[in-house]
């Protein structure tokens, strides 16, 4: 028991609470800087508290490594982490995401052209989107082998349904008046698709694309639990857990967190550019 660390941990907790309370109740609380400052301080405070508790109580690294140990493992093995990142994210998740999104989009276009098909596919798609689809990972690993292709296949299936459902909903999102307007212009199917229904569907499509970013990463990582070459984030997590090298596991989780939020962030950024006109995106124009 090291009391200095424990006292430090307690002090950190009290200090951040005090600072955040001051900022949150001050006049400047609605400024962008405060909105960034408060959660950042909260995060840093939690890390300090975590470090203090682990060091102070002497928690063994096989149960919970300290943030400093995780950071050390992260910086010491950037080459391995990069290799894993490329294998899992770039090859598995990203390629599967692109294929799955494209396939869902095309199927949605077909489904939208036929009322019967749409009314059949929408409930089925909604149902599928709620199922534990990661379960197909062992089957697809059996079919497509251990390398990234099977991971991409899992990702394709996982991202397909949310994007399909959202796109089909989006293509219907125009109101009757807008469609009547197109009819008074005697617009063709493709003209009304490109000029009215696709732009109007964009907020929905991006909603699906954003949900799918997280699913893609989950699918690629979990599929590696069922077999993979000797690299990849899921592979590393399961083997390092077996060796009780938890600092490396946490480093890998850190990579996954960064990759996941960056992926989401990029899609959200593109969304902002494309759907700048939507009420949820308008800012001081």
């Amino acid at each position: 028991m090291n009391w200095n660390w424990l006292i430090g941990a307690g002090t950190a907790l009290v200090a951040i609470s005090y600072v955040n309370l001051q900022v949150a109740n001050s006049d400047g609380r609605d400024q962008p800087i405060s909105r960034l400052f408060v959660p950042t301080v909260f995060g840093i405070g939690l890390l300090l508290f975590w470090e203090g508790i682990v060091q102070g109580m002497g928690v063994p690294g096989v149960i919970l490594p300290a943030p400093s140990a995780i950071w050390a493992a992260f910086t010491a093995s950037t080459d391995i982490l990069w290799l894993d990142f490329v294998q899992t994210f770039v090859k598995g998740a990203l390629s599967g995401y692109i294929i799955g999104a494209a396939a869902a989009f095309l199927v949605a276009l077909v489904a939208d052209a036929s009322d019967f098909l749409r009314r059949g596919l929408l409930p089925v798609g909604n149902f599928m989107a709620a199922l534990p689809i990661v379960g197909i990972a062992p089957i697809l690993v059996m079919w497509f082998g251990f390398d990234w292709q099977s991971k991409a296949a899992v990702v394709v299936v996982m991202v397909f349904f949310p994007i399909l459902v959202n796109t089909v909903e989006g293509l219907r999102a125009t109101d009757r008046m807008q469609r009547d307007l197109m009819q008074t212009y005697a617009a063709s199917y493709w003209q009304s698709l490109f000029k009215l229904r696709l732009p109007a569907a964009m907020p929905f499509i991006f909603n699906g694309l954003k949900i799918a970013t997280t699913l893609a990463l989950i699918g690629a990582i979990v599929a590696e639990f069922f077999g993979s070459p000797i690299r990849g984030m899921g592979f590393r997590i399961s083997t390092e857990v077996g060796r009780l090298a938890l600092d490396m596991v946490w480093a890998e989780i850190l990579v996954a967190a960064i990759a996941g939020s960056a992926f989401y962030g990029i899609v959200a950024l593109i969304e902002r550019r494309v759907t700048f006109w939507h009420p949820s995106q308008r800012r001081g124009r």
Partner: peptide, 19 residues
């Protein structure tokens, strides 16, 4: 007449495309 684009139609709401 519709195909010949003989008329313009104004609806209750402006219905302008926000994009």
């Amino acid at each position: 007449a519709r195909r010949a684009r003989a008329y313009g139609y104004v609806f209750q709401a402006a219905g302008l495309y926000p994009w």
